[in-house]
Design a protein around this nucleic acid. Structure first.
Length: 379
DNA sequence: AAAGTAATCAACCGCTGCTAC
DNA sequence: GGTAGCAGCGGTTGATTACTT
């Protein structure tokens, strides 16, 4: 950890992990309801102000429609939405301890905040409501953990990133005490590099041993290639279609390289390899070495085959459940509802054509998939 | 010791999703 | 059905610190 505690916003994190309650309407981030979707389509068809001047690429992968829309630009004064507060009059930047205490005491005495926009005035804070919310959720709330990520948490992050891409809120929801911002920062600053390094190591290892094996074909001891071309690390560095989609939405070099790395032959792997009707994967999971036993989880585990059934079940799970009893967790996914959810998720998050389309669109800037990763059949 | 570079992470920004009316 | 408004989300920025030359 490079940053010390001298900075006003880098004090010791509170303990007591607990889950942040999701807003009722957002408890399911995947399924979207038809009335809203239809209303949205109508809205977008009439080119709302905030969309004017932007370029959209959209597609229906059933082939019914798709293309590029350039929305006519309106006058600059008509663009964007009204700001949530007067940014000139509210304080910005790092929070002082006094401000923290004001916010903390307000939330403590009033319980759940119903309206963040109105909070600053009530709490005596000269801050934007959004800023207050962010400060509370990411720093002041008493269940926050900062830093000290465990190997298990690394595994969850990598696995989910491979499966669903940069859906940080979903990933963070599986890590009690972690915030989406924290997980995102952790991935961007540390874990991604670690994964890249592991991926590179894996590729070198496989290339070396594969070649050696062929070279000793006549010998008694033939080097056995790995059972799969990519182990866990390689797998999670193979961007899922979800992350390929993410690559389109950002102009960052990292994301671009992810998009370039996307291989159509690999799509749908994270879910496609997991059959909830067979016990075979369970043996595989139960035989997995624990991180403590393995020198490197990134080398010894097949992340490609790792899927978190909790993602479709929506329930909490403990780390003990996840890593001490993977088989049990997977068995829980064997009921029909979970299975159908799994199939839907698989089809929705990893449609080959969609991934290819967004990968191909990676050259475009300001292009964002409409409801990236969403399944039309679910809407 | 100083300057330059890299790493970290809180905070911001702008958008989307959703609810309420 | 349309719309206003807020919550939530993910990408990005910038201040700060650590490390390197």
């Amino acid at each position: 950890m490079r940053c010390n505690t001298a900075s006003p916003h880098r004090t010791a994190p509170p303990a007591h992990p607990a889950r942040r309650p999701l807003r009722a309407g957002r408890s399911d981030p995947i399924i979207h309801h038809t009335p809203y979707r239809a209303a949205k389509q109508r809205r977008e068809a009439s080119a709302p102000r905030r969309n004017r001047g932007r370029v959209f690429v959209w597609a229906d992968f059933g082939g019914e429609f798709g293309g590029v829309v350039v929305v006519e630009r309106e006058g600059a004064a008509d663009m964007g939405r009204a700001p949530c507060c007067d940014k000139a009059s509210v304080k910005r930047g790092p929070w002082s301890p006094e401000e923290d205490e004001l916010l903390r005491s307000y939330v403590r005495s009033h319980g759940a905040v119903g309206n963040w926009i109105a909070l600053p005035q009530k709490a005596g804070l000269n801050r934007c409501g959004k800023s207050c919310r962010l400060r509370w959720l990411n720093y002041l709330r008493p269940d926050i953990k900062h830093g000290g990520y465990t190997e298990q948490e690394d595994m969850v992050i990598c696995s989910l990133y491979n499966s669903i891409g940069s859906r940080w809120s979903i990933i963070a929801s599986k890590l009690p005490g972690r915030t989406d911002n924290d997980v995102k920062n952790y991935w961007n600053t540390k874990l991604k590099k670690k994964a890249m390094a592991m991926h590179h190591h894996q590729q070198q290892h496989y290339h070396h041993h594969g070649t050696a094996g062929r070279g000793h074909a006549g010998g008694a001891t033939i080097a056995t290639p790995p059972p799969a071309p990519q182990s866990q690390c390689a797998s999670y560095m193979q961007p899922s279609p979800a992350s390929a989609s993410s690559a389109v939405t950002t102009a960052s070099g990292d994301a671009g390289s992810f998009g370039a790395m996307y291989s159509p032959s690999h799509q749908a792997a994270p879910l496609g390899h997991y059959n909830v009707n067979t016990a075979a994967p369970l043996a595989e999971f139960s035989a997995m070495p624990t991180p403590a036993a393995a020198n490197s989880w990134a080398i010894n585990m097949a992340f490609e085959d790792m899927f978190l059934p909790e993602l479709v079940g929506g329930g909490d799970f403990s780390q003990a459940d996840l890593f001490g009893g993977f088989g049990a967790s997977l068995l829980q996914a064997q009921d029909s509802r979970a299975q159908s959810s799994l199939q839907e998720l698989s089809a929705c998050y990893f449609p080959n054509a969609q991934a290819e389309m967004w990968a191909a669109a990676a050259d475009h800037v300001n292009v964002k998939p409409p409801g990236a990763g969403l399944c039309p059949s679910l809407t």
